[in-house]
Design a protein around this nucleic acid. Structure first.
Length: 558
DNA sequence: TTTAGGG
DNA sequence: CCCTAAA
């Protein structure tokens, strides 16, 4: 991330550091990863150590972590602006651990604490060796293969360089590297076991007070102990994000989403989109329904009316509803009325001359067609932003429904944001059908027959740009399935199965059954279209005796 | 373009 | 809901 200029004040950094110990961990990890590039490195270290006469366990696994810790610790020291080599050498020579443990190799293995000490010692020694090797490679008494020597050199020298650099540069440099390139699996493995070790290490570090108190203070501070703030400079932000992502990506995501839902959305909608009358676009409508299980659904109702004023079909619905014997439930009725009235009102405002136009149902005006096309295309795209679902548990205040009459395309975002109930199973491109929509669909089918989806869409869903003719068709198909009209044989099982996922009111299902019976889905519509009385939605005239029987049968079965 | 149907 | 073949 950012490095060099713009560094935060050291004090602040330390504060954060103390507040969030994990930060420290991450940093340590970073350092570990940074320095411990390959196991090969360790191997070389061993060689180096051996050259100094110390007994180093060959088992890397048994000592790798500790070694790494020690190494890291030394690294920290150098980070604290100590003269790298000098300070380290001093540390080595001053360290009582060194004095006490030098030359010993057996007993400490069983003692964890001493393991740490040894690790430390090894580390110190390692650093020293590195420096010396860098300067005087020839001092190594044991001969090595050329390859080994080469690798050793190439590995140690850079380390020395980094030490020098680190003493002048900030932690950030390291972190930056770390952030840019994620550690390889092997390196990760090396880094993995560290977490608690850090604390241990802090403890150990404290123990050996001889080595730069400040440096130790830093580490112990990371372990939760308070000390004088070191001069470590590093940027917290990247690490924080890094940690967040690693520790809890999901919660972070949802949290972010929630943020967006609450504040950002508001700001966006009110600030940026205010001029688009977004506020009026908010409508979360809960539709009352016969079945208590019916989902509450928010229906953004496009106020495309002003754009598509030349259209009014609501009265058709009304007329149909007028003689529909199915609206049994008062709640449904009231909802329907409200719904219808709302739309009717709004349409009447701008569509006084619409009725005549209605005769053009079969042959939409070019302009209309174009508009519809545009809408369709747009909708297709807009579906992404559109899906709105309200949890069934989440009953929205009825008042919200009142504002349901206007909605603009520009409000899509607002609506989306407003109904930020992504929790409720809403999916992109999926928008639950409201009862009102289903009713409209049924009305449309009842008047125009099955299969005239485009027309129904135009006539009944002109204000719902998100519903395409295909959607209508699909929905009808689903309704048929839900109503179990097809499965007359195993109707019982079918019904039972459907009941689980079918929140539809019975009245609707029955109407679906009727219509399905009357308008056999795919092929049968031709003879039903035969009647050219587009203006007379009196479907009863089309019912044949057999149809009637079918209807009766379906109703009885329900 | 629209519809039917499968995924 | 999406996609596509067919009309």
């Amino acid at each position: 991330m950012e490095s060099g200029p713009g560094l935060e004040d050291g004090t602040i950094d330390v504060e954060r550091l103390l507040v969030e110990p994990q930060d420290g961990h991450a940093s340590m990890d970073s350092v570990l990863c940074f320095n411990e590039k390959t196991p090969e490195n360790t191997m070389n270290m061993e060689d180096v150590s051996r050259s100094f006469g110390y007994h180093i366990p060959n088992d890397f696994c048994s000592m790798g972590e500790d070694y790494l810790l020690g190494f890291d610790f030394a690294e920290s020291i150098t980070n604290l602006d100590y003269g790298s080599t000098e300070a380290l050498q001093t540390s080595v020579s001053d360290s009582p651990i060194m004095a006490s443990n030098a030359g010993t190799d057996t007993p400490w293995k069983s003692d964890p604490f001493r393991i740490m000490e040894v690790a430390e010692r090894e580390n110190n020694q390692l650093l020293v060796s590195s420096s010396e090797l860098g300067d005087i490679p020839s001092c190594r008494p044991e001969p090595q293969t050329l390859a080994e020597e080469k690798s050793l050199k190439s590995l140690t020298s850079p380390n020395i360089d980094s030490f020098n650099d680190i003493s002048s540069c900030s932690f950030q440099d390291i972190l930056s590297d770390e952030n840019v390139a994620s550690p390889s699996p092997s390196v990760e493995m090396l880094c993995c076991p560290k977490t608690e070790k850090i604390d241990e290490f802090g403890f150990t570090g404290q123990d050996s007070k001889t080595k730069g108190q400040d440096a130790l203070a830093t580490i112990s501070g990371q372990a939760g102990l308070t000390e004088a703030p070191p001069k470590q400079k590093r940027s917290r932000k990247p690490t924080q994000r890094y940690i967040d992502e690693l520790s809890d990506p999901i919660s972070r995501y949802s949290k972010k989403r929630r943020e967006v839902s609450s504040s950002t959305i508001k700001d966006k909608s009110l600030g940026v989109k205010d001029h688009k009358k977004c506020h009026t676009g908010y409508k979360t409508m809960r539709l009352p329904d016969e079945d208590s299980s019916v989902k509450a659904i928010q229906v953004p109702f496009a106020s495309l009316v002003h754009k598509e004023c030349p259209k009014s079909q609501e009265y058709v619905v009304v007329s149909f509803e007028a003689h529909s014997s199915d609206r049994s439930n008062s709640m449904t009725k009231s909802k329907d009325n409200r719904f219808t009235l709302e739309n009717q009102k709004k349409r009447d405002e701008c569509t006084t001359s619409l009725h005549p136009k209605r005769r053009d149902d079969c042959v939409p005006a070019p302009s209309q067609k174009k508009r519809d096309d545009h809408n369709t295309a747009t909708n297709q795209k807009k579906r992404d932003d559109w899906i709105i679902t309200v949890s069934p548990k989440k009953r929205e205040p009825r008042a919200a429904a009142v504002s349901e009459k206007k909605r603009d395309e520009e409000n899509d975002d607002c609506l989306y944001e407003e109904s930020s109930e992504e929790v409720s199973g809403r999916r992109k491109h999926h928008r639950l059908w409201t009862i009102a929509e289903v009713r409209k669909l049924i009305d449309g089918v009842s008047q125009h027959g099955v299969g005239r989806w485009s027309r129904i869409k135009k006539l009944f869903f002109s204000t719902s740009p998100h519903r395409t003719s295909v959607d209508l068709k699909d929905k009808w198909r689903n309704l048929l399935k839900a109503s179990g009209i097809k499965e007359q044989g195993d109707r019982q099982g079918e019904k039972k199965r459907n009941m689980a996922w079918r929140p539809l009111p019975k009245s609707i299902l029955r109407r679906v059954c009727e219509l399905a019976t009357m308008h056999p889905y795919p092929k049968g519509r031709k003879h039903k279209i035969g009647h050219l009385h587009h203006d007379s939605p009196d479907r009863s005239t089309d019912i044949t005796l057999s149809d009637y029987r079918k209807i009766l049968r379906s109703i009885n079965s329900n």
